[in-house]
Design a protein around this nucleic acid. Sequence first.
DNA 1: CGGGGACTTGATACTGTTCAATTTCCGTGG
DNA 2: CCACGGAAATTGAACAGTATCAAGTCCCCG
Lengths: 245, 245
Amino acid sequence: MQNSVSALTLRIACSSCNLRELCLPVDLSNAELEHLDALTSIKRSYHRGDFLYRSGDKFTSLYAIRTGFFKTQVLHEDGREQVTGFQMAGEIIGLDAISSEIHACDAIALEDSEICELPFDQLEALSRELPALQRHLHKIMSREIVRDQGIMLLLGSMHAEERLAAFLLNLSQRFAARGYAANAFELRMTRQEIGSYLGLKLETVSRTLSQLQSNGLITVHNKSIELSDVRRLFDLVGQHPAAPL
Amino acid sequence: MQNSVSALTLRIACSSCNLRELCLPVDLSNAELEHLDALTSIKRSYHRGDFLYRSGDKFTSLYAIRTGFFKTQVLHEDGREQVTGFQMAGEIIGLDAISSEIHACDAIALEDSEICELPFDQLEALSRELPALQRHLHKIMSREIVRDQGIMLLLGSMHAEERLAAFLLNLSQRFAARGYAANAFELRMTRQEIGSYLGLKLETVSRTLSQLQSNGLITVHNKSIELSDVRRLFDLVGQHPAAPL
DNA sequence: CGGGGACTTGATACTGTTCAATTTCCGTGG
DNA sequence: CCACGGAAATTGAACAGTATCAAGTCCCCG
């Protein structure tokens, strides 16, 4: 479930791009696919630091990430901020805004990125016609709920070292699902952003990465990470391969 | 949004029970309502401690709580457990299972409760016919995502005192939305369950409640809570009336 | 090549945990 | 109705983990 990248996302975002091989169960006729293609005609590019949307913006569309990397964050009135997720190619962003029709968080590009805009009214209309699409949309939303609950578990009951192990393993699995190396990758976010996501201060993130390195579990050089002992990383998290977060 | 109890839930769970006054925006004809009533014919009762479903159970239905109080929790392989939410009358439970078609958490009654079972296949079919219902279902799922993100913020960046203030205010608002007293209520859960939900140990929960009491913000007698100074509770959380969590 | 942000590391402070001892509450059975 | 027993809750003292404050280094962008 973790490594099964959203089928809708990919089917949609990828009819016209390079991720088709990740497309999943949704079986549609060619005619039906044409409807989807019509729905997904709006493409857009963003540079690092650009906002895809801001908290308070009116909700109109979901966004499928075609390439690149985003973060979402909620800003508290008193200045506190919490990164609620990091999203990569093939993932859908904006689900939180459906409830109030106003975006509840900011979405910011962490590197140059391309998205496909999915007008939600049209998506709903089409999913009334296509039960497979409807089911898929529901699964995507449900998966987001499961993911969030995994993070609640992490924030509520794990120590710094375990949180970072879980975080790195999660990234690893998601990269692997996209055909990239599972055990060596570049972090797209700063220590502070990682810390915000994991409920830690940036110094603790830095220290803990150093500590994982000196224990031989990983190798760190700035933003480049190598997982040297995946086995022990899983042990730390207390799970065997195929984990939440 | 927090105090707007799920309309679908209520419309459904309440056509045949005593919560009709909370029913919300979904406008349906009588014929359409009959379909909903047909969908919601399965009622069931649970005693305190009963499982509504268990992690690993096959997913077939969502459940609308008609009366009572539930908790949901995820169990980690190494014994850790995390309470992911407390649900009360008018709320929908089971959304996390849609993604994998297997329940990802346990749902346990905290007091004698009644639920209305909503077979998900039928719900999906009906929502293809009724756009208002479809939209409503989407909003319910999205609201759950927003709620979870609020808890992430709480777990990631708040101190014990702030977490408890936010927790109590949230309960207060939800009771108020159901017509119960906002400033005096009984906790249905133990200190340990509160602690698990808030990422604290039960001793810390106890100590912090005592501390809030001696500062004059609340009055505690076992499970009975009185909010003596809502103003300052909101200040603690760093928000003004109408808050997440 | 210069400058500023990002990162690392150390020393110290503080919040929450852990361990332990009591007390209180509540359901059960006499 | 009261007495009993176990779970729940409170409180204290010592401890652990993370935050905070501060200094210095590294890296990348312009």
